[in-house]
Nucleic acid binder design. Structure first.
Length: 265
DNA sequence: ATGACCGATTGCATCGGA
């Protein structure tokens, strides 16, 4: 089973690129982020006609997540628990029947958090990021006792290590590379989760995002911020991981590329 | 960080993104 994550930076602006990629990569489950549209304007038919069931959790203009699945959904949960007043559409979870039992997948669009500082203190944006990460940790912890294959897939806006950026000095102080961010990310992994790329590959300079500005793509000035975070039962079943780098070269590309895990599930 | 960015919005500039 191929399970992928991709921040598409608007599903409507990216519809051609997405459908083309679905046909060639042929993933079983896809976690999308930054769909940037209300559910009524999501291009449902175009994606369903390729054989996918669709779970969407969108909002106007910003954020928005979705899960595509060739198999039907057993269960869908919209929104990250822990704050009823949070109106940002950044989390969606679904259960799909695999060959050997249920598989739980979440699509995650973790807040950017910049600018980090406002005046003398942390900004509201950065505090929101850290709070959101604490909520994600709580959700992840509450799901562990199920002992299911669980894949937390998404745009984490976290650069795990210096080798995951072209310019560690330049990124120092950025919300994606702060010590507090690293601690919050590590706390989730320390519950017993595994970051798939770290386990299976671990090479330097394997980026998933290149800014549209400054010739970042032709100069390969990227960062690795899109991750598959796996429960023990998922980590034991993953057979390979690919970063679909070539997608960044296409017509009207997203600034992120897909990350695909192949699982025996 | 930013060569000459990109997307959404009742828009003709501003905001958010990483």
């Amino acid at each position: 089973m191929k399970i992928a994550t991709w921040n598409v930076n608007s599903i409507n602006a990216r519809l051609h690129a997405v459908t083309k990629w679905l046909k060639t990569a042929n993933p079983d489950i896809v976690c999308l982020q930054e769909t940037k549209t209300i559910d009524e304007a999501f291009p449902r038919e175009e994606i369903e006609s390729l054989g996918y069931n669709l779970a969407i959790h969108g909002q106007k203009s910003y954020n928005g997540v979705a899960i595509l699945s060739k198999r039907p959904f057993e269960e869908v949960i919209s929104g990250l628990p822990g704050d009823d007043n949070d109106e940002q559409a950044r989390y969606l979870e679904a259960v799909i029947m695999g060959d050997n039992g249920p598989v739980r997948v979440a699509t995650i669009y973790l807040p950017n958090g910049n600018p980090v500082i406002h005046g003398e203190a942390f900004s509201q944006k950065y505090l929101y990021k850290l709070t959101w990460m604490a909520r994600l940790k709580a959700r992840a912890q509450s799901l562990l006792p199920f002992e299911e294959p669980l894949i937390l897939a998404g745009d984490y806006n976290v650069i795990p290590e210096a080798k995951d950026t072209h310019d560690p000095i330049g990124w120092e102080g950025d919300a994606a590379f702060r010590p507090e961010t690293h601690k919050a990310f590590r706390e989730i992994l320390n519950l017993g989760f595994t970051e798939a790329f770290e386990m299976l590959d671990g090479r330097a300079e394997q980026y998933t995002f290149w800014d549209y500005q400054g010739g970042a793509w032709p100069r390969n000035k990227g960062i690795r911020i899109d991750h598959l975070v796996l429960s023990p039962q998922a980590a034991d079943r993953i057979r390979g991981l690919t970063i679909d780098r070539d997608v960044r070269e296409g017509v009207k590309p997203s600034d992120h590329v897909p990350v695909i895990g192949v699982f025996d599930l």
